[in-house]
């Protein structure tokens, strides 16, 4: 706990995270992708696992499926009142990203369900049912 959760990404945030959040706020979700053209990779990659070249941010479609999820019943920060659901979304380009489920009170989510990027107004990337 004690991490910064400002609305606007700040200099003390990892610069890659900062840039992903800045672009997400404009409606463009990005993933890491090989600069030499091998394609998308996971968000933990710092070089392309196929060719070793640098990775860069590239836009994704924003569509994906729920790979897994969990429901937190205790709050850890003021922006996420409990209960809230964390989705591990598999983007259709391949990478998986932890996001917050935008749709509490609606139909329950299931692994395999199609979901779509729904915004990042408060510095938190959210997905809703497709």
């Amino acid at each position: 706990m004690g991490s910064r959760l400002d609305d606007e990404p700040t200099k003390d945030v990892n610069p890659v995270v900062s840039e992903i959040l800045r672009r997400a706020k404009t409606g463009e979700l990005c993933c890491l992708s090989c600069a030499a053209g091998c394609g998308a990779t996971d968000y933990a990659a710092r070089i392309c696992p196929l060719c070793g070249k640098p990775v860069e941010l590239r836009p994704v479609s924003g569509r994906g499926r729920i790979h897994s999820y969990s429901v937190f019943h205790a709050p850890f920060n003021s922006k996420l009142p409990a209960p809230y659901t964390v989705l591990l979304v598999e983007l259709e380009e391949g990478p998986r990203l932890a996001v917050v489920f935008d749709g509490e009170g609606g139909p329950p989510q299931k692994v395999g369900d199609a979901v779509v990027f729904s915004g990042a107004d408060d510095g938190i990337v959210r997905f809703s049912m497709a």
Binding site: L5, N14, V16, V17, N77, V86, A98, V100, I124
Partner: peptide, 19 residues
């Protein structure tokens, strides 16, 4: 109650409540 950094982006998991 700390981040496990599952996704691999520093600060990402705790920002999204994955603790």
């Amino acid at each position: 109650s700390i981040s496990m950094n599952l996704i691999g982006l520093d600060g990402w998991d705790e920002r999204h409540g994955l603790i």
